[in-house]
Every structure is written in structure tokens, then in C-alpha cells.
Amino acid sequence: MQGYIKVDAEMERAVARVTASFPFPDYFDPELSGHITIAQTVQRYLDPGARILDFGAGPADKTAMLAALGYQCTAADDLQDEWHKRGGARRRILDFAERMGIEYIPLDDGALPDTGKFDMVMLHDVLEHLHDSPRDLLIGLLERVRDGGYLFVTVPNHVNLRKRLAVLRGRTSHPPYELYYWYPGNWRGHVREYTEGDCRALAEALGLWLREVQGTHHILGKVPRRYLRAYLAVSRLIPSTRDTWSMVAQKPPAWVAKPELDDAEFRKLTGLKSWGELAH
């Protein structure tokens, strides 16, 4: 470990176990890619043995960190990213999850567990890929969380330092256009990234108690080494420039889902008389 994040011996052992078993060795550096900060966040709210659903888990790398720390983990993903379909990646992911004691549900041929089973549902780097509102998805997932349980979301920061500097230089804050243009099939990249205000609005719209929202680092590995110390210094002074937002919200007792707005709420919230006015 290079010392960017303080870890205890238990976390060191978890990192070593996951690194030794993970089937894609060049995929991540646990210290630079958010795995440790995600695990530390979970530890602040739940004790080992708690039940966690990681939705959109991909190769279950972040899920595995928690499994190695003693949590009961279920992972779910459609495994339809382009790289999931190549080189036997899907089978390697499922085999890795089994070795780590993770129940993995491929969403193309499985169903999520019944309601009220989990202490926390996590979505890491998922919401920014959705082409539609996350409302229905998150309501369905929260129905599978016990009263008093948690929603833990991480999303890219739409106004991080790199993107602010890019826009000031007249460049795009979106992925390179060539990547978007040549992407095979339906676009699976980022559709809408988030700000701190978006995270707060999401928790409020879902009727949850917001416990924390803070800037964090999940892609330090993409920062050139010669700039890393300067980047960390700036982001310590201005946390809103960090690359990722981390939000934890709690499900209140007797929580009731709100699937839509009535007419009065719609007009108050948007100032519009109908959705059709958005086209003008």
C-alpha cells in the first residue's frame, strides 16, 4: 500500500485476499480505485455479517472487498458490457464470486430476492449510465431493504477538477466523442453525471434520511503520477473537485414509495403546467 489512504490490518488482509483471487489483474488498484473507501464507508454503518446487495456489481471487485471483511453479499448485474462478453469474462466473474462466497445473480436469467431482506443496497458507478430516471429502479431496490437500512450510491462528479479545467479550455466534459461514435451497439457509457445537489435531491425525492454526501476519490489511478500530489492537495482544500460523490441515505420506518407527482406537486416543483412544456 502506498499510503494515500489509511488502512488497518484487517483491511490490508482483505485487499490481499481479493487481489490474489481476482481474475483480471490489471483491472484495478484497490487503493486508487475506490474499493477501500467504499469498504470503510460500509463499516461506519454496518457490522460484519450484515446483508448487502451490490446492484450493477460488474466483476464483483467491490463486492468482494466486503465479503472478505465478513459481510453477507449478493451481487447483481446484467453482464452485458462489451468486455463481459469476451474471453470467457462472464464465467470468470461468476467463478470469482463463488470463491469469495458471494451470491451472484445475472439479471438476464435470475430474479432479485424478495422484499425486506437486505441491510444495505449499493450502486457504484451505475446511475450515470441510465437513459431513464432512476426512480423505478431505486424504489424497487429499496423495497428489498429493511426499515432502517441504507442506500449507498457513488456517482462520477460532473464538476470535478479535470472537467472544470477542460471546460475552461473549451474542451468537452463528456467522454471522447470517438468513443461515443464508435461504441458497438447501444451506448453503455455515461448519460448523466451528478453534482452534490443532485445527490441531495435524489435522497429527498426517494423519501430517505440523508446521512452523508461527500466528495471522494475513485479514479486516482488515472491521474498522472507527476500530478498526483498536487491534485490531492487541491482536492483536500476543495472537496467538491474530487472525482466522485459518495451518498449514504437511510430508509425510515414505515417508508412508502412515491412513484409519481400529483398535479399540484408537479407545478410547484417544475413551474410547468405539463411535461409537454419541456419541448418548448
Score class of each variant (00 low, 15 high):
208 L>M: 15
237 L>K: 07
193 E>Q: 07
239 P>E: 09
195 T>H: 07
189 G>T: 05
229 R>C: 07
187 W>C: 02
226 R>L: 14
225 R>A: 15
225 R>H: 06
235 S>E: 15
207 G>Q: 11
232 L>C: 11
242 R>K: 08
241 T>P: 02
244 T>F: 00
218 H>T: 01
209 W>N: 15
223 V>E: 00
199 C>T: 02
210 L>C: 10
202 L>G: 03
212 E>R: 13
218 H>R: 03
242 R>T: 07
194 Y>R: 08
210 L>S: 07
208 L>C: 15
234 V>E: 10
236 R>H: 11
193 E>Y: 05
230 A>N: 08
239 P>V: 06
190 H>G: 00
242 R>F: 00
208 L>R: 13
194 Y>N: 02
217 H>S: 05
241 T>I: 15
189 G>H: 05
209 W>P: 03
198 D>Q: 07
227 Y>S: 11
199 C>Q: 03
199 C>W: 01
221 G>R: 14
244 T>N: 02
218 H>I: 03
224 P>S: 01
235 S>I: 06
198 D>V: 06
240 S>C: 10
231 Y>C: 02
193 E>T: 08
224 P>Q: 00
243 D>E: 02
233 A>Q: 10
227 Y>I: 08
213 V>L: 08
212 E>I: 13
192 R>Q: 12
218 H>W: 05
238 I>Q: 06
189 G>V: 11
243 D>V: 07
199 C>I: 04
188 R>H: 12
200 R>Q: 04
200 R>C: 03
211 R>M: 15
239 P>A: 03
207 G>N: 09
192 R>C: 09
220 L>D: 08
197 G>R: 11
217 H>F: 04
206 L>P: 09
202 L>Q: 05
237 L>C: 07
207 G>L: 11
223 V>R: 05
204 E>Q: 14
236 R>G: 07
193 E>M: 09
234 V>N: 04
222 K>L: 14
230 A>K: 06
236 R>V: 06
197 G>K: 12
201 A>E: 13
193 E>I: 06
235 S>P: 01
236 R>L: 12
236 R>C: 08
218 H>A: 03
219 I>K: 02
194 Y>H: 09
216 T>I: 15
225 R>C: 00
223 V>S: 08
209 W>L: 12
189 G>P: 05
198 D>L: 08
205 A>R: 15
190 H>Q: 01
214 Q>P: 00
218 H>K: 04
190 H>P: 00
206 L>S: 06
213 V>E: 06
244 T>V: 04
209 W>K: 14
226 R>Q: 14
